[in-house]
Amino acid sequence: MCKKENENFPCAADRRSFLNRLSLALAGLVGAAMSLPPIAYVLSPLLSKPRRKWRDVGGLGEFPIGETKLVKFQDATSTAWAGNTAMTGAWLRRIGEDQFIAFSVNCRHLGCPVRWVNDAKLFMCPCHGGVYYEDGAVAAGPPPEALARYPVRVVDGKVEVETSPIPLTTNDLV
């Protein structure tokens, strides 16, 4: 197998193919070492799920029974610089003494913000014309699912909504 070419390179073919493989392997290792940490860093939001938090959205007295009001609260993760981009809205309706429904504002079609139209008792989406009934069920348009709901509770006369991920249609995590 080993063909002697000259005194300095006694076994040239073997040596070349070995060095060829060695260099490729080392280059691959260098590449992996420099790119894996950055890739993991970019994907890190997927690995560390923030703990859900209960956010105070107002006192019981602010919500007359039967009325549907927009409430705003902060997401679970709040990077110091996020400012108002860390806010989320929900349509909150008081249905009993201390019973509430909190609808996500995200349309189940593609996530646009739905508006509550009180006189018609409908939620309507401005993007592609999705319409929902008072209970969040689809009334018209392209949405495939009813409006998502957030957990709500009443603690010491305060209404609290639990932070949740943006509802994803067909892959619900809420």
Binding site: P45, A76, G83, T85, I166, L168
Partner: peptide, 24 residues
């Protein structure tokens, strides 16, 4: 997010988290 199986992963990679926020 509508992609089967990997949808939520891609959606959250896009948002930089589970919601729009400081990392988006």
């Amino acid at each position: 997010g509508r992609a089967p199986l990997v949808g939520p992963v891609i959606a959250h990679a896009i948002l930089g988290g589970e919601t729009v926020g400081g990392s988006t």
